[in-house]
Design a protein around this nucleic acid. Structure first.
Lengths: 234, 234
DNA sequence: GTTTTTAGTGTAGTATTGACACAATTTAAA
DNA sequence: TTTAAATTGTGTCAATACTACACTAAAAAC
């Protein structure tokens, strides 16, 4: 069966931008390629879409191979399709955006892929158009974290409001007023007080919250103002 | 040169969702296929990505073929990649989202492609997964028109505030308070009073505005609240 | 002229936000 | 044991933005 004899068949790649948060900095999971081409250079984790594989399944497969995690937050970000983007052969790359709880990942799998967590500031030069992909992903993170409750995906299941604030301060690289932030967050009704306190604090222990899973699902697509208005015009 | 001998080469299609506004309803430009496969059925305008063509150029080419327009608002929306989405052959489709000023298009080109403007409510069953693509595009329009000044792309260069309001009411299918809408719009500083009045009105003639091109560019990525808050939680 | 329809502006009450101060908790050092 | 330092939790007030309204002006039809 060949309905489209004149059309070109093209390689379809999948590349993954994987963000994590260590309590202080936003980090990217990048691999130092130990295979050709471009062996020894830094790149995003990726692979090719298989002939009979759904696109979304391909992304999950590649993310699982690197992190050992299956239930992580993934969004399709954008497809990069400049004709000359891969000098080896014409390749269209579908880029996925993933947020993971950094402590959950399988460090053996990461090590075997020659991958490392690298802060955004310290990221090396990347192959092909991967730097553009990362830039686009950072924009996406900044844009969406202000409107939708995705920040939680980067934190442990139980987290404190100060932790969440540090996360947002890292994303936007600005200081946020503690009191206004706390008021805004609690008013969303997304947070449930677990009754527990954080114990890795050297001073006053903060309350541990968890997400209200039901509300999180139903309200995910609402718009929120997680950030001060002044930030949103940036 | 074949660096990736084991990977599969796949057809890459481009499909375009083209929105227009006739002053009353949001419309979609759909084609009734006069070619195989699925001849006689309704679908989105599309085509295959050429071997040495940039992805974005492919979208512009396909949009130009159908509408005769080159400078239109286009965004990449999402790539659809279910393994079985095209029964003819495995095809990954990159979907583009376009907004056009409905009076500007080349009606001869549209006619020759067997295409028609169809209101959202009246749209027929579409081939493959095109209905999912349309649903996704409508979501995207609703989401983005509330936050960014994209509605203007559907109106003539000179437009009135009541026209703009009818557009937003059509997008969200809700009535909007005239006075609050006008105040909010003018406060963005995006509108320039042309000094002219609309003359296709049977009663009081409305002021014609145009976009402040400079402000439009620099402020495009700011968040705005074009819609009442009550709407945004839907 | 009078009526009908649409456009343009104003205002008062309410809710949200931003900028701030103060009290409470915990550990470590004095 | 007390004190200091750091961090968390809560409260208040003024400014701003939003909502729900009412009124005036312009244009054409009768």
């Amino acid at each position: 069966m060949n309905n489209y004899p004149q059309a070109s068949r093209i390689l379809v790649a999948i590349d993954c931008i994987i963000f994590g948060f260590d309590g202080k900095d936003i980090k990217l999971l990048l691999i130092k390629r130990n295979f050709e081409p471009e062996k020894g250079k830094w790149s995003l984790m990726g692979g090719f879409l298989n002939a009979e594989e759904d696109l979304a399944d391909g992304a999950v497969r590649i993310l699982y191979n690197l992190t050992g995690l299956k239930d992580i937050y993934v969004e399709q970000l954008e497809t990069f399709g400049k004709a000359d983007r891969d000098p080896g052969e014409r390749t269209v790359s579908v880029v996925f955006f993933a947020l993971i709880k950094i402590d959950d990942h399988d460090s053996e799998a990461v090590k075997s892929h020659n991958a490392s967590w690298i802060t955004l500031d310290a990221r090396p030069k990347l192959i092909f158009d991967h730097e553009k992909m990362v830039t686009r992903a950072i924009e996406h993170l900044k844009y969406n974290a202000a409107l939708h409750p995705i920040g939680f995906e980067l934190l442990p299941e139980r987290f404190t409001i100060p932790q969440l604030q540090k996360l947002y301060e890292a994303i936007y690289n600005i200081p946020i007023d503690r009191r206004n932030f706390s008021r805004k967050l609690l008013s969303t009704g997304l947070l449930i007080d677990t009754g527990q306190k954080n114990n890795n604090s050297a001073t006053k222990k903060a309350t541990l919250y968890k997400l209200d899973a039901e509300r999180y699902k139903t309200k995910f697509h609402s718009f929120w103002n997680f950030m001060p208005d002044s930030m949103k015009s940036q």
